[in-house]
Simulated scan of single mutants.
Amino acid sequence: MEFTTERLEIRTFRKNDLPATFNIYKNADVCRYLLHEPWTSENMNEAFAKKLTNSTLTETGTLNLAVVHQGEVIGDLAVWYTGMKETVEIGYCFSDSHSGKGYATEAVKGLLEKLFHEFNLHRIQANLDARNVASQKLCERIGMRKEAHFLKDYWNKNEWTDSMVYGILHEEFYK
């Protein structure tokens, strides 16, 4: 899957995207609410190899897409089926050096449009760490609604954390 938005190219990852992707994921602040620790020079090749192989959305496989602005990878989008009919979950991560410019909103909204249109989905959801206010605001900006707030339901990085679920239905996206 590849597409463009007004300012961005969204495409599968390429081998030469490793340095820019490592610059995103080596940052502890960027990885604070993710399920993994920051990348290191020791594990970056293995972690990046997964992004290279995740190039197609299937019932059992994740799709990873690079968000590119002016030739530089500034973010990562992920999509996977939840197991519920015609429902996927999305994840996203962006370089903190490009925050505040609307790139995440543009990329994720473009992704929803592409997913609803090409895959005839019923529902798209995002599960996130409740402390991640920026992610909550992003979901709300693109029309997703908060559906749940679970208290200390997820053990991650040696602590119990709250999680939130945001969702949007096909018919809501196209209103």
Rank of each mutant, 00 (worst) to 15 (best):
K146Y: 07
L8E: 04
L115C: 06
N16R: 10
L115K: 06
L121W: 06
E172N: 06
Y166D: 04
F116S: 01
R141P: 07
K146V: 11
A20S: 14
R141Y: 09
A104T: 09
Q70H: 14
E72V: 15
E2R: 12
A148R: 07
E106Q: 07
L8S: 04
A28N: 14
E172R: 05
W39L: 07
C93Y: 02
D76T: 00
Y92S: 04
F116N: 01
Y33I: 11
E2A: 10
E42C: 02
C139D: 02
E72H: 10
V108K: 06
N27E: 13
L111S: 08
K26L: 05
I90L: 04
G143R: 02
E89T: 08
L121D: 02
R14S: 12
K15P: 00
F173Y: 14
T105G: 05
S99I: 09
E9T: 15
E147H: 08
F150A: 01
L112W: 02
K175F: 13
G102L: 09
K146R: 15
L65H: 04
F116R: 00
E113Y: 14
L115E: 02
E147I: 08
N127P: 03
E37F: 13
V108R: 06
F173E: 03
G143V: 05
D76G: 02
L52A: 01
P38E: 03
G75T: 00
